Simulated assay, not measured.
Amino acid sequence: MLDKICQLARQAGHSMMNFYNSHESINVTYKSNNTPVTHIDRLINNIIKKGLLLITPDIPIISEEDNYDFKICKHWKNYWLIDPLDGTKEFLKKNGEFTVNISLINNGIPILGVIYVPALDVLYSAYKHHAWKENQLGLKQKIKVIKSNIPLFLTSRSHIDKELSHYLSTIKNYRIKKLGSSLKFCLIAEGKAQIYPRFGNTYIWDTAAGHAILVAAGGKIITLTNQKTLNYSLSDRNSLINPGFFASAL
């Protein structure tokens, strides 16, 4: 099934790049939280949902681009969680830092994760305790986290976080890099970075695929409040918003 999901992510990403490389105007509107959404987000959403329904017709789907009755979702033990175009701001800026995110949640745990980076034609995937990176030449290799005495911190390119600035002021030796979308999880998973602290809001579709890949590569994601692993069990939540967290190789 992982291979089928990887193929689906590539299909969605290739469709995305047709718009990215064209000179057509993009219809942009804004959600209630002031984040942009385009007709491309919705198109990719439809491609992925149709593909998932063909692969697993009995597993429900939660997507960033749809609305849900949370009272019904709370009873789902297994579900697909997707962000069709993670990094819409980066897509519009044409900096290449956007991804297709697909994950499978089982009893609160992301057991399968796929992140495709269309602009780089690079695909990250994970199932249970194994994580891989496949480059544009088709070379697929296992990946794992790498610790560093001078860790590279990854921060959001599009979000300003005052708490993050305060936290970094308490750290002596570190490097820092701003990056868009779920690429932050992938860089830690393949050993190119070590820590992604997030104090502001994220949604479960922002993190689940990256969570699966990072943990399979030997990393972890713990909440800031109780130092427990970030959990995706809907019965334990009041909303689809994540608490603050640390994603790390440590």
Rank of each mutant, 00 (worst) to 15 (best):
D3L: 12
K4N: 03
A9H: 03
G13C: 11
M16T: 15
M17N: 10
Y20S: 04
H23T: 14
S25A: 14
N27Y: 15
V28Y: 03
T29I: 13
Y30I: 11
S32C: 02
V37G: 01
D41L: 06
I44Q: 04
I44P: 01
K49P: 00
K50I: 08
K50N: 15
L54W: 02
T56A: 03
T56P: 00
P60N: 11
I62F: 05
I62S: 05
E64F: 11
N67A: 07
Y68G: 03
F70L: 09
K71E: 12
I72Q: 10
C73N: 00
K74P: 00
G87K: 01
G87M: 00
E90V: 03
K93Q: 12
G96H: 04
F98D: 09
T99V: 10
V100W: 00
I105E: 06
P110A: 15
I111M: 03
I111G: 02
I111N: 07
G113D: 08
Y116S: 07
V117I: 14
V117C: 10
P118C: 10
L123T: 15
L123M: 15
K128W: 01
H130C: 10
A131K: 08
G138E: 04
L139W: 01
Q141M: 10
S148P: 00
N149E: 13
P151W: 02
F153V: 13
T155F: 02
S158V: 15
E163P: 00
H166M: 13
L168V: 14
T170K: 15
T170V: 03
T170Y: 05
K172E: 14
Y174L: 15
Y174A: 08
Y174P: 05
I176V: 12
G180V: 05
S181D: 07
L183H: 07
C186P: 06
I188V: 07
K192N: 14
Q194M: 05
I195T: 11
P197A: 08
R198H: 09
Y203C: 08
H211Y: 15
A212M: 13
I213C: 06
L214Q: 06
I221V: 15
I222W: 01
I222V: 14
T225M: 04
N226K: 15
Q227G: 05
K228G: 05
S235M: 09
D236C: 01
R237E: 02
S239P: 05
I241L: 14
F245A: 07
L250W: 12
